[in-house]
Design a protein around this nucleic acid. Sequence first.
DNA 1: GCTGGATGCGGCAATATTGCCGTGTTCATT
DNA 2: AATGAACACGGCAATATTGCCGCATCCAGC
Lengths: 329, 329
Amino acid sequence: MDERSRRKILDVLRVLSESEKPLGGTRIAHALALAGKDMSQRTIRYYLSLTDTEGLTEQVGRRGRRLTEMGSRELETAYVADKVGFVAARAEALIFGMDYKLRQGRGRVVVNMSTLDRADLPRAKEVMRRVFQAGYSLGERLLIGEPGQRMGNFTPQPNEVVVATVCSVSVNGVALAEGMPMTNRFGGLLLVSEHRPVRFTQIINYDGTTLDPLEIFIKGQMTSVQRAAETGEGVIGASFREIPAPAAEKARRLAARLERSGLGGILLVGRPGQPLLEVPLPPGRVGMVVRGGLNPLAAVEEAGIATSNRAFGQLFPFEQLRSYREVLK
Amino acid sequence: MDERSRRKILDVLRVLSESEKPLGGTRIAHALALAGKDMSQRTIRYYLSLTDTEGLTEQVGRRGRRLTEMGSRELETAYVADKVGFVAARAEALIFGMDYKLRQGRGRVVVNMSTLDRADLPRAKEVMRRVFQAGYSLGERLLIGEPGQRMGNFTPQPNEVVVATVCSVSVNGVALAEGMPMTNRFGGLLLVSEHRPVRFTQIINYDGTTLDPLEIFIKGQMTSVQRAAETGEGVIGASFREIPAPAAEKARRLAARLERSGLGGILLVGRPGQPLLEVPLPPGRVGMVVRGGLNPLAAVEEAGIATSNRAFGQLFPFEQLRSYREVLK
DNA sequence: GCTGGATGCGGCAATATTGCCGTGTTCATT
DNA sequence: AATGAACACGGCAATATTGCCGCATCCAGC
């Protein structure tokens, strides 16, 4: 049984779980078509015969199959490992909750929350400062919360400090407010050479994971943000977005405005119909690349300092964040 | 060779066509992964061996395959039949070009352009009036252009009249202006009973066709809008949209405001996590159903009057459209 | 209770994919 | 020129899908 099939089988079981009555191949195929998934009736029956064997489903006369107890449980646990669209949903909810006004430079944006040991803070500051300075962060603001201070609904433990950095989906929120629908394509690791983006070396689609892709890469020590900041050669976190082609010009202007507002993070905006960094695009769309908000923390982790990161942490008033020049003195 | 494979092969050829250098399985698989398509290297080589046989590709030593002349031509013609995402792109461009202001009730919206024989107009008016009256249209406005009048960049031929109706993607535009990103899921035929939507009987995903789904169904005489308007039982054109779950409440309010502005068309707004009309939704999203803007024309076609329809025709100032009560007197 | 149509089932066989693997080439470097 | 990594190729065999088909049930309506 391969991965792909497993997933398709889960799709089938999911349909069954949403129906009280038993269903057969035809109706299931119908339901899946509505979900945008094509599968022949025969194939569905083929899967069902497999799940029958595994005891996940059972026949009810000729009226169709239904899930067994075991099947329901299987489905629930599988959900955990396969929360398709979960990150995407959370990101969207946060984006929708933003009320940042670009003109006024205030309002809530989406921030990442990271924690690290208080004792490591001085060294971490130094590392992060270099990353901000080299322009590999998202915007130039952040906030460090010491124990006793509250940061949104987050309170540092006694020996911890909390670092809030702007999350890259904040860019989507600003764009949306400007009437520009921006969709997340994937997050990944971006190879940088001479301080210029070259290509993505690893990608994770947003709708297949539970974590923000960058969190995973940070934990896996797969980045080299420090080196990138110092020599211009390295691998940083970044994500790929898409907008409608007619919005491309506006996006370029937006990038400049964001830069001036301390929210700069748009690395590249492509051209209609042209692949961007080798990533192909559907007709009528243009791609863009946005720096990852967690890059400074990735650098910290690279420096051997343990961090714990939570992307898409929460909404936080932008005006309460401070310039890194001030905070990381 | 089945349909599915054909499409996958085209994906592979497309990658080849975008590269000047010959490529082999590994790199092609890489490129496809960036496009969100998974295919094993072996499978790609398998396809390539097939296309080699057909003369669409050829080997270049061990450096990989490249497209032959024939291959390029094949790809171009295939594009015509398989303009994936083409409608979606056009719709998006138009949406982005809208400047309709809900508060003021003016500005450009997306309209469909239909033409019919001038001689049929009186009868067509009667038919359309019933549809508007029964509330199966999108909004309550339209415009009929006689020869000599210009309608946007459209001029009726001597014996024709042009009918402009509001296109359902205008709703997306209004929503976008309110900060609510709405995506088109599919268009299709909606079964109606007792004037209430029951379920979709046919669907066509937007990104697999060149035409607006409803155009196809109208041509195929698959609707029964007249019957729906008169008895409450029938099949009308409608489309399925998706919005982020947190936007659901706002969408409901928007539906009411649109109604008051003569742009009513939102039939249903679902609940988070709940399937809507049996259509399953990803976590964190809610579905909605919007009436098709071409329904009045579908009814005309049903009445045996030939029409020609162009959905997503162009942008047109809403304030220049008139209430059906006035136009279809 | 009878009947037509819709739906369900699974055997069989033809395709379609994909993993495994041994053999060559290409290419950037040393 | 020598070398090793990265790729390319295609045979073979194991899976995964899917079309075709004959037959069993279910269900709504008469």
